[in-house]
Design a protein around this nucleic acid. Structure first.
Lengths: 196, 196
DNA sequence: TATAAAAACGATCATACGTTTGTTTCCTGA
DNA sequence: TCAGGAAACAAACGTATGATCGTTTTTATA
């Protein structure tokens, strides 16, 4: 045998990404063997290397994609909103929606930081810091305008982010609580925590 | 060669636990090889099996110990406190203090759940649920007494737990923020989120 | 002090892993 | 239409892993 009928580069790469996302999410990066990954895609192990450089590169690629998209989307979402309170509301709603929608990417992006090489990890941490700064910025402007009363900007930002990101670990879209209610409850928690 | 002078059972096991905790915290369970672990303790790889049954058992042992201690301590902490508001304050302060003090155990207890065998995982998840129920109970009583205004008990509990547990991922005891301030900021966020 | 248990050693097992190689076949653009 | 790149295969490489084994020495008990 050799090349399969109907095979095409980009499609296979996309399939590898999707399968990798799933396997890493379910069992962790180290626990995912390239043999398992290849089998899931329908390839021989060695054939993976026609599409990825190394296993490490695949992981970095997945996380990096996620972070870049996250930053793009939040900036798009914030455009045109000036009032800090409105911005905080929009941030909360967006963050939750995005983290529900892409919970696998989010989970991997934090749980598998440790599996990245030092260089790759540095790059991702820098992007994450950028995202955190978006929230810090909102809180700062709100505090300056006396709309918010905040003891410590960064601590509050981390607390809020932790709270909102936490849903990834338990929220089930098919469960008892619907998205709208989830956003309501969390928005209230966030706003009450920072408004005077 | 054979048995080392001065060696004793319980001491060695404690050293294995401590070294394992450290290695798993820093690099993850899968990434920790028993050879590395043995070297850190000062043993040959095979000698570990005089103290642990399997690698999996060591992981379970560490997490289980952590969960049992957590439950014991929170129950001790709550004893004698009746008012829901006071209980919530005490819960928040305790949870933060404990999670700062034992951040390695806490991190492993959530990040390495996936590395547990199905049976072991079930046991741990049950214990975690017990702990979550402690908070749900406080929120429920407070809501019944109209001291709290809460849209959804369990969602709120998860949100609060996520927020408080989040500090494990970034808090540095030697950093800019001292423990007291950290507890203040978070207590305010929690209380404002649930009081009418 | 005699003896069994505890705790270490060093060697080795089978397996699984990420990656490389040489080769074959399919697809596409000139 | 046909050459060359893309994409797959099968096989193998070297290494690392968790675990087992027989043996030896120290510790603790009776």
């Amino acid at each position: 045998m050799s090349r399969t009928v109907g095979s095409s580069g980009p499609k296979t790469l996309a399939a590898i990404r999707e399968a990798g996302l799933d396997l890493i999410y379910k069992g962790g990066y180290e626990a995912m063997s390239l043999r398992t990954l290849a089998a899931k895609v329908g390839l021989q192990p060695g054939s993976l290397y026609n599409h990825i450089a190394t296993k490490q590169d695949l992981l970095y690629d997945l996380i990096h994609n996620h972070m870049v998209t996250l930053l793009e989307r939040i900036d798009a979402e914030m455009e045109g909103i000036d009032d800090p309170l409105a911005r905080l509301k929009a941030f909360t709603a967006f963050h939750l929606a995005y983290h529900i929608e892409r919970k696998r990417e989010v989970f991997i992006g934090s749980a598998e930081l440790r599996s990245l090489s030092p260089k790759n990890r540095k790059r991702i941490v820098a992007l994450r810091r950028d995202y955190e700064d978006r929230l810090c910025d909102i809180l700062e402007r709100g505090a300056a305008k006396k709309q918010f009363r905040i003891a410590d900007i960064r601590v509050s930002a981390y607390a809020i982010l932790a709270m909102l990101t936490g849903i990834c670990t338990w929220y089930d879209p098919k469960g008892r609580i619907d998205r709208k209610k989830l956003i309501e409850v969390h928005t209230r928690l966030v706003l009450d925590g920072v408004t005077p």
